[in-house]
Design a binder for these strands. Structure first.
Lengths: 255, 255
DNA sequence: GGACATTCGCTTGTGTACAATGACCTGGTC
DNA sequence: GACCAGGTCATTGTACACAAGCGAATGTCC
């Protein structure tokens, strides 16, 4: 199921991305990526003990990672009842998209001013990777890279608070897409990303912002957030019920 | 010194604001308030054991509260070296103000659309309390209420992600003011707050936004964020030394 | 006399045991 | 037959004990 989530034991701290190698961050990053890649569906119960066993660490570490994810809004922490992958309501989705539109606009303007040649090259590389992933049929990686593109762009804007806010918004957006996407089309077309980089590189703020806003339009036009999505909404609201039923049908084997 | 920070022991969970009564939140709220009231200076070391003793809880609780504060940017968590109250650099302050301007504008527009009569009444009450505090000479409470006004306004905008981002920005702004304010003037004049409520109540978005932007201008015009603030910056950088010296002169009595 | 290395002590990082709370199941009654 | 009450169980909440890391002080060597 989740072949990415291998027990990590006490790695010699050589792997992973260098200094981010505290067990804490590893667990956080794995769960975060799993959500971005939509391998963890909204509503999924995240048991501390189970995760601890999977990652080979104690509940302490898991708890910290979950707490962090909870603070970013991608995980819902219910006191005394454990953590589940958040399942945003339509109203919450609207709020997130509103905030995201605002942030993306600011980020785009700042990126036009501050993005370095090196950062632009990195962005192009990411778009390239994204295209490859979709071409390869690896939809999960494509979605993750698409999200990371927007994160990287936020970094190019050189505004730390915006980056952390954007991180929260992008991951929540990924959850929303997981719940509400109507078609099977890729939700973030890489050619739009490329056009955006072109405008930024040309230091054309007006065009860059226009492209970004259109990009946002395209993203939520692919979702069923409109008023007629009641049925879909119901389905989303009760997704945790479905999840629970799946779980209980398997739990008979454990005890 | 901090008479607010009484040991809370195992309260029958009756006190405090109802369901937010987990020890976790109490500790968090107390430290948060202390920072907003500027009773905790930037750079102050936040020892887990000391705080645990003060609040009468174990380090586990303290650690969680600090982690949360760290995620909001008001506390700096240095791995293996403990937590200190963050002391934003001039550059960080600029980034925070940029983000805040953006958020306040969005919040103002949304508040004009969504603020209920009840919320407007609450806001007026807060401004009134704020005025009283300053009149009473309680500068700390005044500053806190001033910050809470902006938080309440964010709630009136009915956008959860913006509220949590605003929370982070407001508390960091408080830190910046603590470090960089030039005069002893109140940093947030309540008459501007009142005028803002008037415009919102009249559902005049354009005027409300204009007032809010001027309000932001006034706030950072009172700060020494201009390039000539090097000396002030130095003072801020070494504020933790002063704090440490104060603390060690008192520590002989405790143990 | 100064600079470097080693050791000591304090603080934080992590794991684990116990307590408490909520969910589920079973039994009884209306 | 359905609903309510009680008990049991699993899961989370908290505290504590041990391990590890960093900083500071001291001693030695140059």
């Amino acid at each position: 199921m989740n072949d990415q989530l291998q027990p990590l034991k006490k790695q010699p701290r050589a792997g992973k991305s260098a200094r981010s190698g505290t067990q804490d961050d590893i667990v956080y990053a794995h769960i975060f990526d799993a959500i971005l890649e939509q391998r963890l569906a909204p509503g999924t119960k995240l048991s501390e003990e189970a995760l601890g066993e999977i990652f080979g660490v104690s509940r302490t570490i898991i708890r910290r990672a979950l707490s962090r994810l909870g603070h970013e809004g991608v995980v819902l922490l219910r006191p005394n009842r454990g953590a589940v992958v958040a399942s945003p309501s339509v109203e919450e989705a609207r709020q997130i998209f509103y905030a995201r539109r605002m942030v993306e606009q600011a980020i785009t303007e700042l990126a036009v001013q501050h993005a370095s040649a090196e950062q632009l090259a990195e962005l192009r590389q990411m778009v390239s990777d994204e295209r490859d992933s979709f071409a390869r049929g690896d939809r999960g990686a494509g979605i993750r890279l698409s999200g990371e593109f927007h994160l990287k762009l936020a970094e190019a804007a050189r505004n730390a608070p915006l980056v952390s806010f954007q991180r929260s918004l992008v991951s929540q957006t990924s959850l929303i897409i997981a719940q509400y996407e109507s078609g099977s089309r890729s939700h973030c077309s890489y050619d739009e990303h490329n056009a955006l980089i072109d405008a930024i590189e040309a230091r054309n703020a007006e065009q860059a912002v226009t492209l970004m806003m259109h990009h946002m339009d395209h993203i939520d036009s692919k979702l069923n957030l409109d008023e007629d999505s009641a049925s879909d909404d119901l389905h989303a609201v009760f997704s945790h019920v479905l999840q629970t039923r799946k779980k209980s049908s398997r739990s008979s084997t454990s005890r």
